[in-house]
């Protein structure tokens, strides 16, 4: 019986009772002392639970969370900045070294008859070097390297720009 009363009272509190059940509750409140005690106490519990205390979060919590979030953004920006500079520099160095290397080798006069092992190797690789020299001296290569240079300059610009945006965002805070 207690379980039935509890269920009825809970449904009353949740506004889920039918008109018949509402009448039943009215009658029980008049006739049944045990039900009345349960009902009133249940209602008291329901009404007073709204006053449950809310614990205050520590004052510095907002600051701490934002500093953690911002530090992650900082790391992200720094990584992006660092990565772009390194890749751009390495690309520039590789292109310049290749250009100088093949230009120099292509111009060399190779010895025809020799017993020097280095010169022998040079003679075998000479056609390759001449071929590469021709590529580097060609209009196509100059156009491609020009475009590559432009892209590199552009990446420098974006690198600088992202760093500037990052600094601006830092200033906002």
């Amino acid at each position: 019986m207690k379980a039935k009363y509890d269920d009825l009272i809970n449904r009353f509190i949740d506004n889920e009772v039918t008109t018949n059940e509402l009448n039943e509750i009215d009658n029980l409140l008049l006739e049944n002392e045990e039900f009345k005690v349960n009902f009133k106490t249940h209602k008291y519990v329901h009404e007073n639970l709204y006053d449950l205390p809310i614990y205050s979060a520590p004052e510095t919590v907002t600051e701490n969370i934002m500093s953690k979030i911002l530090s992650k953004i900082t790391v992200k920006y720094k990584k992006s900045y660092f990565f772009r500079v390194i890749v751009t520099s390495i690309l520039l160095m590789i292109i310049t070294s290749l250009f100088l290397f093949f230009s120099y080798l292509g111009k060399l006069d190779f010895v025809q008859q020799t017993s020097n092992p280095v010169e022998v190797v040079s003679n075998y690789t000479k056609p390759f070097f001449i071929y590469m020299y021709k590529i580097f001296a060609s209009e196509v290569f100059r156009t491609v390297s020009g475009i590559a240079g432009f892209v590199i300059l552009l990446s420098f610009y974006f690198t600088f720009n992202s760093f500037k945006n990052f600094k601006d965002k830092l200033k906002q805070f």
Binding site: Y55, A57, T62, M66, L70, K169
Partner: peptide, 14 residues
């Protein structure tokens, strides 16, 4: 990003 503080302040205590 700064606006996230509004959400923190709104929900931190609960």
């Amino acid at each position: 990003v700064n606006d996230f503080t509004l959400l923190i302040d709104r929900y931190k205590h609960k």
